[in-house]
Design a protein around this nucleic acid. Structure first.
Length: 416
DNA sequence: TCTGGGGTCCTAGGACCC
DNA sequence: TCTGGGGTCCTAGGACCC
């Protein structure tokens, strides 16, 4: 059966959302989307990269991911605004709520992208193109920002289509349009061809998606292993993934941070690791999961990364137990190079309910579980900084680091 | 590169077993 | 030790996405 799939992509999401917010709250009468502007981090904290850009900023050659320093060199009058992730989540939720008015099934691919399955909906809502216009215009009218919508028979082609001309546009990329609309594009534009694959393909003399589509899959396998078969199929518009009812359960939970200075002593490093462990464990408990695998990653002053991982003897969600493992891993892994970035991650997750506990650890387990529970409650009620570990006092370091469990933000319409 | 933070998946190589 | 051939599991690193 032929499916009809939509891919919705918010145009310059972070920037559009901030612009919409500023207009609606009269913070400023200037629409950020109409001037060279970007959403970016704080250079003094070494978080200085471009997260999103306006179309006028793009005209200066500014790219997502580049340093603020180089962006400002390209455009000295550039307006730089810090990210407001709570706002972004509200805007994303508001958009998903609109989709749910029509679609029983919304796949949230990222904060600013969704897949929808329009198969068999034409007799209710009209042709895919006319309904896509209705959807796009409704979002703009009710929420104030624009989206691109890509339409095809599978997710890959719908996603490629939404990436064509922007903003506020609807494109189709049905199989009979592949040759004309997709094959002339540079191979780098294909989903799953990143920097490394692009460089290797260029060396093989493959420059366009069409050339990739028509190259020998065995040659690709020789250079890319299974990834070669994947990008060959994608270049031919072949993909089998279906729109999923909801996001599958997470495989792991991690937080990481770039530190505003180079860390050269293990005491400071471990305090930062503790601040990351606190937030990761809060998220873990929030999701009612326990973890068996723990890993630490370190990025040095000269951008060399290393990682180290271990299995715990038993799955847990106890901050103290996970932190102990983190410290062991750090001591084993650190080569004394100055540290720029630290990360921790837990994985091999299982559901907390109906898990057996060894009798041996029962008392200790009870004690720490009760402790974590109380701390989580106090933080939920009085704020995340209301209770912190004594070791952070006078340290000048943040006691919690990285994303927190999702709070219940008011939906956007009530905010505007 | 004055180069973020959250993820997923794949693979090479080593340990270990028979 | 002038040492075979599978299989499985684990780890570190790297690729990709937003």
């Amino acid at each position: 059966m032929k499916h009809t799939i939509f891919h919705i992509d918010v145009n310059s999401a972070y920037l559009s959302w901030e612009a919409t917010y500023r207009i609606n709250t009269q913070v400023s009468c200037i629409d950020l989307r109409t001037i060279p502007s970007i959403i970016g981090g704080d250079e003094s904290k070494r978080h200085g990269i471009v997260l999103a850009k306006s179309i006028p900023a793009k005209k200066y050659g500014i790219k997502t991911g580049e340093s603020l320093f180089s962006a400002r060199q390209k455009c000295p009058s550039l307006v730089i605004v810090p990210p407001n992730y709570k706002l972004f989540m509200q805007c994303s939720n508001a958009m998903v709520d609109i989709f749910k008015e029509y679609f029983p099934l919304v796949e949230r691919y990222s904060v600013d992208e969704c897949f929808l399955d329009y198969t068999n909906m034409s007799h209710h809502f009209g042709s895919p193109i006319s309904f896509a216009h209705h959807l796009k215009d409704k979002i703009q009218k009710e929420l104030g920002f624009t989206v691109n919508i890509g339409i095809s028979n599978n997710k890959l082609l719908a996603k490629m289509a939404s990436d064509f001309e922007k903003p506020n546009k609807i494109h189709t990329l049905f199989p009979n349009e592949i040759q004309e609309k997709m094959w002339p594009l540079p191979v780098r534009d294909l989903f799953m061809v990143g920097r490394a694959s692009n460089a290797k393909l260029i060396k093989l003399g493959i420059y366009t998606i069409g050339e990739l589509a028509n190259s020998d899959p065995e040659l690709l396998y020789a250079h890319f292993k299974s990834h070669g078969y994947l990008i060959h199929a994608y270049a031919n518009g072949i993909a089998t993934s279906i729109v999923k009812p909801c996001s599958p359960e997470a495989k792991g939970i991690g937080n990481s941070t770039t530190i505003s200075f180079d860390v050269t002593d293990s005491r400071t490093a471990k305090l930062i690791l503790l601040s990351l462990t606190e937030t990761v464990c809060m998220r873990l408990r929030d999701s009612d999961m326990i973890a068996k695998m723990v890993s630490v990653s370190i990025k040095s002053h000269d951008f060399i990364s290393l990682s180290h991982q271990m299995q715990l003897t038993e799955s847990t969600d106890i901050t103290n137990d996970i932190y102990k493992a983190i410290c062991t891993l750090f001591d084993e892994a650190w080569n004394k190079e100055p540290i720029r970035h630290l990360g921790i991650r837990v994985s091999s997750l299982s559901s907390k309910t109906n898990t057996q506990l060894s009798l041996f650890d029962f008392d200790k387990h009870e004690k720490y579980t009760a402790l974590d529970e109380s701390i989580d409650k106090i933080r939920l009620r009085y704020g995340n900084t209301s209770i912190i570990r004594a070791s952070f006092l006078h340290s000048g370091l943040r006691p919690l680091n990285g994303g927190m469990p999702e709070e219940n933000y008011p939906i956007m319409s009530s905010l505007l």
